[in-house]
Design a protein around this nucleic acid. Structure first.
Length: 283
DNA sequence: ACCCACCCCTGGGCGC
DNA sequence: TGCGCCCAGGGGTGGG
């Protein structure tokens, strides 16, 4: 569920709520939540007890907390993961997977995840850039993101534009919502072959991606329901600013044509039939 | 070296 | 009411 803006909201919450604090004890309530921690739940718990969280970092949709041990607690929220910072006396959430208590006795960190596509792991020596995150490209809000490399990389692909936007090794942080929103802004159909996208079109698309991610972040991200919330349990407001995503049959805000829904990569894509004509040979 | 289909889960909404 | 189906913001993996 969460894409870059939603994950960044969570990162900021972790920076405020957890950085500088020392873990007292960790309890894994569901093994699937630590399936990427190959040494198992007990090892995960033991590596975190007594460790101090130094910061909260993010690349794309991946989060990590550098620890004073030199390791990193890494995480991905998947489709439904939440990292909540809540008072210890608060009742357990229905899908509580991992609980972190701190030595100061203050608010706990809880990993809650209905669908269990998300998960956490401790990565050895990963404080700077965990090995499990290294395969992911920088995201468009990273100051070191290379725009020229993106344009080259996009045009070098033999794929469709939307597939390329969703491919986290070219540019990270974009999911189904923001891909559709950026394509709508760029007036490009997601099935457009990448090799046919001109350099100016690629540059403009990247700028639209950046704009929509930034605007959403300023609104606290997109929330359709209570599944996506900040560490404080607050929903974002950007859903009201979406132009295309989820708006099948509603008028295009630009030209008034009814927006369409297409199934693409086994998921929904929303676009304007007039502003974003389907290419002859979609990819 | 790519690229893509498939798989992993739970729960809400809908039609019958 | 209840059942079965479809759908949902994700990525890793293994095959072609």
């Amino acid at each position: 569920m969460p894409e870059l803006p939603e994950v960044e909201v969570v990162r900021r919450g972790l920076e405020r709520g957890v950085a500088g604090r020392t873990v007292a004890a960790v309890q894994v309530h569901h093994p699937r939540a630590v399936r990427r921690h190959l040494a198992g739940a007990r090892d995960f718990e033991a590596l975190l007890a007594g460790r101090t969280v130094l910061a909260a970092r993010r690349r794309g949709k991946y989060l990590w907390l550098p620890l004073d041990s030199g390791d990193a607690l890494t995480g991905h929220l998947g489709m439904s993961g939440q990292l909540l910072v809540v008072p210890p006396e608060k009742a357990d959430e229905a899908h509580l997977r991992i609980r972190f208590a701190f030595t100061d006795g203050g608010r706990e960190l809880r990993f809650v995840d209905q669908r269990t596509f998300g998960g956490l792991a401790v990565v050895a020596g990963g404080a700077d850039l965990p090995s499990t995150v290294a395969h992911v490209a920088r995201d468009p809000l990273d100051p070191e993101f290379d725009d020229d490399a993106f344009v080259r990389g996009l045009r070098a692909k033999r794929s469709g534009v939307k597939r390329a936007l969703l491919d986290q090794t070219l540019v990270s942080g974009i999911g189904n919502i923001y891909a559709d929103e950026a394509l709508w802004r760029a007036r490009l159909h997601g099935g457009r072959p990448t090799e046919g996208v001109t350099r100016p079109q690629a540059r403009a698309l990247l700028q639209h991606v950046r704009d929509v991610l930034q605007e959403s972040l300023e609104q606290g991200g997109t929330s359709f329901d209570a599944l996506y919330v900040s560490t404080e349990g607050v929903s974002g407001l950007f859903a009201r600013s979406l132009n295309a995503y989820g708006r099948e049959g509603e008028p295009c805000p630009r030209c008034g044509t009814a927006l369409r829904r297409e199934v693409f990569m086994n998921r929904s894509s929303f676009s304007c039939p007039r502003c974003q004509p389907r290419p002859r040979h979609p990819r």
